[in-house]
Amino acid sequence: MEMQKQIENYWEGEAAQYSESVWTEINSFKRKAWTDLIEEHRPPGSPLAVLDIGTGPGFFAIVLSGMGHRVTAIDCTRNMLDEARGNTEKVGLTAKFLKMDSHLLSFADCSFDLLLCRNLTWTLHDPGAAYREWFRVLKPKGRLLIFDANWNLRQTDPAWQQKYEEDQREAAKLGFHRRGHVDQATGDRISRELFFSRTLRPQWDAGALLETGFQKLFIETDITDRVWGEEEKALYRSTPMFLVWGEK
């Protein structure tokens, strides 16, 4: 089975559990924290045409629609889109939801002012191809915001695995325990084959985005104090979330 299909099948089964986490975030400080962070880095103008890539259960769709933007949200799985659509409707907001492979977008050139994603790029089997597509659909002076972490270097690097295990032990002392996936074994198997399980970030992203054609670039290597709670900081201390910002 081709890698993209494996990825889609896997995430279909994770939708319900991830949807629960959206409501935890919506009802915490995180909704405002992410709103403020996006507001700082988005291009000028309002409302913007925004593409939420890999929306999952719709957290960013909710945040961006709540900011007054025209949101199109894509995901490669039907179950995630169903959760996202329902979650967005529950808070009285709207977005356009489409099933789509983020490596191959069906939109015309220069369609969006802002593209963004969170915890999505690590799942890409060909990030270079995806970044070229994202550049294509951005308007001139449009911006791309990537929020992610080196989640799976531990799958291929023993030193990173050791750091991860140390983090889990220290977090357990504080009463925090990592919540596993519905099918952890399959997730780990797929992860070991992915590009970003062998590639240190955000250094790679910087070079790739410049090569793709982005004219301006901004990187913040650790945004955890702004958007993570104490549990996440403890569990994932060695893999801080970063921001990569590119302007076309």
Rank of each mutant, 00 (worst) to 15 (best):
K96P: 01
H69T: 07
Q215D: 04
F29Q: 01
G187I: 09
F97I: 10
P57Q: 08
D52S: 02
S65T: 04
A208P: 02
R85I: 02
V63M: 01
A73T: 10
T24A: 08
P127D: 11
P140H: 12
S102F: 14
G66Q: 12
R132K: 15
A49V: 03
D148G: 04
K233Q: 07
K163Y: 10
R154H: 09
L116S: 03
F135P: 00
V91K: 10
W204E: 07
R189I: 04
I74D: 00
G68V: 10
A130S: 14
T199R: 11
W134K: 14
K163I: 03
V244G: 00
L144T: 08
F218V: 06
Q155I: 06
D148M: 13
T224R: 14
N150G: 06
V71Q: 05
G180H: 12
R198H: 15
K248R: 15
R189P: 01
E40W: 04
S191V: 06
A149F: 03
C76P: 02
I223F: 01
W34K: 13
S65N: 05
D113Y: 10
L194C: 09
W245V: 05
L153Y: 07
N87L: 12
R192H: 10
S197R: 10
P202F: 12
A206T: 10
G187D: 07
E14S: 08
L37F: 10
K90E: 15
W134L: 04
D183A: 09
F112C: 00
D225H: 06
G128P: 00
R136S: 03
P140S: 13
N9C: 02
L235Y: 11
L243R: 11
L145V: 06
S102G: 09
I7P: 01
E8P: 00
W23F: 12
N119E: 08
A234H: 11
P127K: 14
L145R: 08
R143L: 04
M100Y: 07
K173P: 01
L104E: 13
T24C: 02
A130F: 08
P44V: 12
G213V: 11
K5R: 13
H69R: 11
K248W: 01
I223E: 00
L200N: 07
E89A: 15
W204V: 08
G187C: 05
T88I: 10
S19I: 09
G142P: 01
K99N: 14
G92R: 13
F214H: 04
H181A: 13
G13K: 12
L51F: 02
E39N: 14
